[in-house]
Design a protein around this nucleic acid. Sequence first.
DNA 1: CTGAAAGCGCTTACAG
DNA 2: CTGAAAGCGCTTACAG
Lengths: 341, 341
Amino acid sequence: MSDSSHRTKSTVSDVAVHAKVSVATVSRSFNTPDVVRSDVRERVFAAAKELGYAPNAAAKALRMARTHIVGAAIPTLNYDIFARLINAYQMRLSQAGYMVFLMTVGWDSRDIYEPVRQLVDRGAEALLIVGRITDERLHKFLIERHIPTVTTYSYQSDSDIPSIGFDNYAATQQLVEYVIGLGHRNIVMMSAATVGNDRQAARVRAFKDVTASAGLKKSSHVIERVHGILDGAAAMRTIHATYPETTAVICNSDVLAFGALAECRKLGLKIPGDVTITGFDDQEMATLVEPPLTTITVPAFEMGERAADALIHAVTSNRTITSVRIETSLIIRASSGPPRS
Amino acid sequence: MSDSSHRTKSTVSDVAVHAKVSVATVSRSFNTPDVVRSDVRERVFAAAKELGYAPNAAAKALRMARTHIVGAAIPTLNYDIFARLINAYQMRLSQAGYMVFLMTVGWDSRDIYEPVRQLVDRGAEALLIVGRITDERLHKFLIERHIPTVTTYSYQSDSDIPSIGFDNYAATQQLVEYVIGLGHRNIVMMSAATVGNDRQAARVRAFKDVTASAGLKKSSHVIERVHGILDGAAAMRTIHATYPETTAVICNSDVLAFGALAECRKLGLKIPGDVTITGFDDQEMATLVEPPLTTITVPAFEMGERAADALIHAVTSNRTITSVRIETSLIIRASSGPPRS
DNA sequence: CTGAAAGCGCTTACAG
DNA sequence: CTGAAAGCGCTTACAG
């Protein structure tokens, strides 16, 4: 046949004509092959191949009321941990025949209603969302429309939207107790913005609770910065100037810690001799900075895969999703140690 | 009205009934509002709002033969530079009313036909692809079906598929000339796999050409590794053992360089005193490692935005895309210097 | 300015 | 096992 037949998208009827069968038979050959006689089926496949036929996804979605598209709403992709999460999520999903709509929505969970609706309105039949859902409009929408949704990153025991994540409070609790156990008394937590960010908020809460119950309320502080490396460096400078007695800085992300580490070098502070620095995330770089970073593992890959699996089950078998709490661990490396004196 | 009306997705006819108009008028109210009488239009909007109406994307796509979905095929998201590229791409696109299908396709350009077809078959009407298209089936498919496509990352002067990228050969050429100018004679290039990767291949070619014309053919070597930090470290160990006379290692990515840097620390090699290390990408971490890394800037953000703009224009005004060559620069930092003697 | 009707490309009861 | 026909939810000539 001539090349021109490839030139434009062909449809079931093109294939039907070519194979001398009805469109119904073409459809059946692809969707329920066992129900069509094998020689006819082969004729259909041959015609389809020759015409470069692929079913029109929109028509299929309209007819079946199934798009096979799932969405992901994450703060940003410029962040190691979210990129890994989405990478795992997408791979798992496309293996199962789903496409993923990606949407970056910024750091504040109060602002995600519009973009998440966009995802659903444009066809996503299930959703991965990072962090707790705080917008009541969004919550109501998801429940009423029965959109299978899983929130990731923080495990929520008290939400009717299932979550696949870890306990941010407990992880930080463990870390702070470790630092206090080392003998530190003047501790600062460097956090990203806590508004609209339940993960950061939980960590700050854990820090305040643990330091308070250790009698360190007066000698411990929290400083909030946004998420970049440079912010970490700037915050470290502020800490050094404002709280010079500080011997340990607990950073709520590895990225902030990298910035802090670099700034300490500039300030001539020895780590961990002069100051202990810890991170959160256990990015690959955490082992390669100097000194290697004490941090908390964040199971980004696992969260992405499990969220994908849960959503696939939910949309296919209408199964309800159960929350999963993944364990994290404290990884002790050279950036932490006892205070000097 | 009762809450139950929100419960299931409503359609144009629901809105039409509610607003006591025809479906045509509902459609027009949204798509060509100026053509419907304002009081009627307002009645339609009120009904739509009350019913939580949003047009069915699949039906719209089928009818208009426009999905407003664009695809992106990238090697992986676990890589700073691609994550930034996609972040910029997605933000720009969703601002313009497009959704993005994300697909990770691995590092070898010979293997991307299936996943890219998947993107198109599932509705992508335009594509961003990383790197040169080497699979003839893919090339033919894209051309015959007139899928607006831009390849990024490497500028191609000789392809009929437009590219928005930079000149990998020239960038490396500049870098190698700089290193030779410093006085190095025993130079090793540490590259990621070059099969199916035109960016890496171009850099290796530049390295070989420049060292050869400087009369360094015998004293220079190329070692190929895959893309992880640990691979960089392993490669550095090999270099130290196999070519102990080496005084400069040119890494084809910052990630490889980070690994090399860490390994040099373990080996007790001073940088740049014992060995000069350079990277490629200018990731944010490049300024924060010790010592900061001499590297090449890669305009990931700019490539993402410009690719998005070009594709939007191509699908809306049927405009043909012109290739863009973006300049890179060599950033000299403390990890490079003259050889010791 | 508005409505009735056709048709986009599929799948699936319903007949045969 | 196969085909004719309806219908998914839209948009848009075509009439009025």
